[in-house]
Amino acid sequence: MRTIAEINDKINRKKAVVLTAQELKAKVAEEGVTSVAKEVDVVTTGTFEPMESSGAVINLGHTDPPIKIRRCWLDGVPAYSGFGAVDLYLGASCPVEQKEGEELKERGGGHVIEDLIAGKLVQVRAQGQVTDCYPRGTFEAAITRETINQFYLFNPRNIYQNFIVGVNGGERMLHTYLGPLHPRLGNAVYSNAGAISPLLNDPDLQLVGIGTRIFLGGGVGYVTWEGTQHFPLQKRLPNRTPVGPAATLALIGDAKQMDSRWVRGCYFKNYGPSLMLGVGVPLPILNEEVVVRCAVEDKDLVAPIVDFSIPRRVRPTFGLVSYAQLKSGRIVIEGRTVRVAPLVSLYLSIQVAQELKQWIEAGNFNLTEPVCQIPTERTFLPQNRWTEF
């Protein structure tokens, strides 16, 4: 019906019809797929959830005399420095270093990234490898995002296409990457936005690929590759949506453009730090099939209920549950009613899609053609063997 070039022409003339995923689903229910496909040009999706496989590339700039950094801390959080002399990679889930006996600091790389994006001062402490080129041995300073060179997020794994529901069938409290799970099925936690989540509206990755322009942390970002743990061969329902964790994406974006409203450090008790991140993906309405996929509702999407009390890579499940049931706040497990909470912020996920919609309507955000499709045949390899050296 239309091409991305034609949609971009309408965006540039501020004539594009843009709906959020939530709005599109309601419109399809009222008017049908064919009518919506003729009228709508773009649907925006969004999520705001913990994405711990994230981090920032930072170039400090050279000191005088120069230093070749080999150990570095940003506000006490170790940053990787094993490449260029003053290049760093700060992982979102890296915790602040603690001295023995010191009170626990619930802080890590995600908090430092948030502070830099917010324009706050961050303390740098570095140790160098002294060479003829780089004679300086140590360096300490305070930096902001305005006093460093490159500062961009480069995230190896973001926006899971579906995930799990965590429960605890054991006898003691468990502290997990989903937060606290109470014993004896005391609660359940899920972390995907369901029907408004980006990749559940493009289940076969026909629209999203390498080079796709996205909303990332309040700025413009791009899809750079498949994400780590990318598993598109996950079992799927007849509507093509996966029944558990499936595709993932690697993302990149200029952190100097971002807004700390959409990039927030967080901390999970007895687990560690992470990063709450807003990601929005625009999907071009190229034909009716796109509308059919985007019309999927929470009742048509499922996730596995996984028991974290079994400390194994493959844990037992209590079957599948729909996102409609999850969002109701109660699910039933083996005849027992269990209260449910989302780790994802459903409110802010909707706001991400809404803000991206406004960018496109204002003519400030064009769509891009993927330069390459994301692989759809990747298997998932566990570590089942250990080699002794």
Rank of each mutant, 00 (worst) to 15 (best):
R213N: 12
T3H: 11
D87A: 07
V371R: 14
F215A: 04
R172D: 15
Q98C: 13
D202M: 01
F380L: 14
Q354S: 14
S54M: 03
A85P: 11
N187A: 00
I252F: 15
A16Q: 05
R213L: 02
G272D: 07
I310G: 02
N364V: 01
L185I: 01
T212D: 03
N287M: 12
P284Y: 09
N384I: 13
D9L: 14
G272A: 04
N155P: 00
H175Y: 15
Y267V: 11
G91W: 08
Y347G: 09
L88H: 02
P242K: 03
R184G: 10
S322T: 15
G119A: 12
F268R: 09
V189N: 08
P65E: 03
G219L: 02
G128V: 06
R13V: 05
N12Y: 05
Y323W: 08
P183I: 04
G82M: 08
R261Q: 15
G363D: 11
K327M: 07
L200K: 00
H182K: 15
Q161V: 03
L237I: 07
T228L: 14
Q354N: 12
E103I: 14
E49W: 04
R184N: 11
Y271P: 08
K120C: 00
L205N: 06
G61D: 06
P242R: 00
A118P: 07
V352T: 03
G218V: 00
P180W: 08
S53L: 13
G209N: 03
P242F: 01
Q358G: 11
Q358H: 13
G272Y: 02
I210S: 03
V344E: 01
L249Q: 00
M258F: 12
A85W: 02
R157C: 11
Y190M: 09
Q22Y: 15
S197V: 05
V314A: 14
E31T: 12
L19I: 12
G32S: 11
K269S: 14
P370I: 08
L90C: 06
R107V: 15
L320H: 10
H230N: 04
T387Y: 14
L301E: 02
E6L: 01
R313P: 09
P50V: 00
K38A: 13
W225C: 00
L199T: 05
P232W: 01
H182C: 10
P304H: 06
S35H: 09
R264Y: 06
K68G: 06
P78V: 05
V122C: 08
Q325E: 15
C72H: 00
V321N: 10
